[in-house]
């Protein structure tokens, strides 16, 4: 199975809002720790090394548009 990069979330705005709420009130360190736990939980759920490697590559790709500092 390949990494799904086409729309797959039933409610994208709702998901995004929930993710932001998850981080509310956290320091940058706490947010980083939470993200790490999330990555580990989701990676285990996916469980398919090929899909995970594809996700690693997609995540690591430099952004096409550099926003100004």
């Amino acid at each position: 199975m390949a990494l799904v990069t086409t729309p797959n979330l039933r409610d994208p705005d709702g998901f995004y809002e929930a993710l932001m709420e998850l981080h509310e009130g956290l320091s940058p360190e706490e947010s980083a720790a939470l993200n790490a736990r999330l990555v580990l939980l989701l990676a285990n759920h996916i469980g398919d090394e090929a899909v995970l490697e594809e996700a690693f590559r997609a995540a690591r790709r430099p952004a096409l548009v550099q926003h100004s500092p």
Binding site: A33, V39, N44
Partner: peptide, 23 residues
């Protein structure tokens, strides 16, 4: 710092979740 964050995330999850114990 990133390695430390992931290492500590594994330890945190391992208290409750079997999969993290393997890590």
């Amino acid at each position: 710092p990133a390695e430390r964050i992931f290492r500590d995330a594994v330890l945190h999850l391992a208290e409750k979740h079997l999969f993290a114990r393997g890590l």
